[in-house]
């Protein structure tokens, strides 16, 4: 029981350092790149809609001005 408690404590409170895990050490870096790519794609999409939204607002106001 004490052993389980000790292991849980270690896992929770100590930093994990680079160990020789059975996984390509570059895995974290690839996942990070995928994440950055995903964020950039969201940014680009939001940016595109934001441009469209700005264009629409501009169009409405120019129309109103012309009517006045």
């Amino acid at each position: 029981m004490m052993r389980v408690f000790y292991l849980t404590f270690c896992l929770l409170f100590f930093n994990i350092h680079n160990a020789h895990a059975y996984l390509d050490p570059g895995t974290g870096s690839i996942i990070l790149q995928a994440l950055i790519g995903f964020i950039a794609a969201i940014g680009a999409t939001v940016g595109l809609y934001w441009q469209k939204f700005k264009f629409l607002i501009k169009k409405i106001f120019t129309k109103n001005k012309k009517q006045n």
Binding site: L11, I16, N18, A21, Y22, L23, T27, G28, I31, L35
Partner: peptide, 9 residues
């Protein structure tokens, strides 16, 4: 992310 890969490969 590197820590996660070590903890749960």
């Amino acid at each position: 992310l590197e820590n996660k890969t070590i903890l749960d490969p």
